[in-house]
Design a protein around this nucleic acid. Structure first.
Lengths: 180, 180
DNA sequence: CGCAAATCGTTTGTACAGCAAATGATAGTG
DNA sequence: CACTATCATTTGCTGTACAAACGATTTGCG
């Protein structure tokens, strides 16, 4: 009766479904990661922030926000909770007292080492369908693309001629402003 | 001007930053896609839904939600707006009058073809830092991983055994051993 | 047959994240 | 010293996720 067509991603050869694939994989990653990181103040976000604090040398909150693509206002209360949990510490930079530099506490570093083990297991599971070689290629490609995106983020590129269509849209989307 | 530290993903060899890389790339994709799809009712989500309606044979709303990992309640008003824009149409299935089957209208299909061109350009830009070979590898890996995730998802609705899992991939096993 | 359970879609309510704008503190500049 | 810029915080609004309740309908069991 209801013979459903073969289910899978029939458009895997199409060039316009990268966003879908990324969204699916990322959602799966988050789903598993949130379950595994339930004891971290803000789950996977808190994990990323903590990791950035431990790797970088006492980054400012703005640097953290730019690196993790998190809004500044979100970063504020995100750090509030991490600090309350004793994982990071905010200190006013004596050289520029406007900025707060965030560093991981000793306890935060120990905790982070544990968390990274859990997350590594999660990622193995997310990529379990890829053989070892494809897995590494995927990791490397994602890392390279992400690094390039971060480099391209600060100044939005010159090819912005297509942006900002006139408001004839039925979707009533808020137009993205071209900058600050 | 503050001298940025050697910025990139300094932990690219670490195994626990896949989530960060995926999040960054996906966010970039969405940022550009939303700008390009401002005339689609719900931006990139509307685009994905429309694409799924056009590819599949009149899927039910539940099937759409499962495929795109969108909540059912969200799918409702998402389809409301797509239908209001004349891109899709909901019809009660005469065989089971509980379900609504969604199909793309002719106008929806024409529109979709245009949108896919725009999205393809966006993706070229997102992956502009990768050479052609790495780009295709990344696409293929993401597609494979996403397909596997969808196959592993049915934990959400275990009763939906109606799907014929015609396994074209080796990892087509269900039944996840390690529970949450 | 008739009633209870299950399913699908919708509605409602809550919580959280993103975004923009305003505010306060501080630094740099003319 | 006055003026502007930057950083962090706060506030308000919007969109999404998630859970629960609901009506309509199908299915299953006595």
């Amino acid at each position: 009766m209801t013979t459903l067509p073969p289910d899978g991603p029939r458009r895997s050869d199409d060039t316009s479904n990268l966003g879908w694939a990324l969204a699916v994989v990322l959602r799966r990653w988050q789903e598993l990661a949130e379950a595994e990181l339930s004891d971290v103040p803000h789950g996977s976000r808190g994990f990323h922030v903590l990791g950035a604090c431990a790797d970088e040398e006492a980054p400012t909150q703005a640097a953290l926000a730019a690196r993790l693509l998190i809004d500044r206002s979100v970063m504020t209360y995100l750090l509030d909770d991490l600090e309350e949990a004793g994982l990071v510490r905010r200190r006013v930079d004596p050289g520029d007292r406007r900025v707060r530099r965030v560093c991981a506490t000793e306890r935060g570093r120990e905790f982070l080492a544990d968390l990274r083990g859990r997350v590594a297991r999660v990622e193995e599971r997310v990529l379990s369908s890829l053989d070892a070689q494809a897995r590494e290629l995927f990791r490397a490609a994602a890392g390279r693309a992400a690094a390039a995106v971060q480099r391209a983020e600060p100044e939005l590129d010159p090819c912005a001629a297509v942006r900002d269509v006139a408001g004839d849209a039925p979707g009533a989307r808020r137009g993205r402003s071209t900058g600050p």
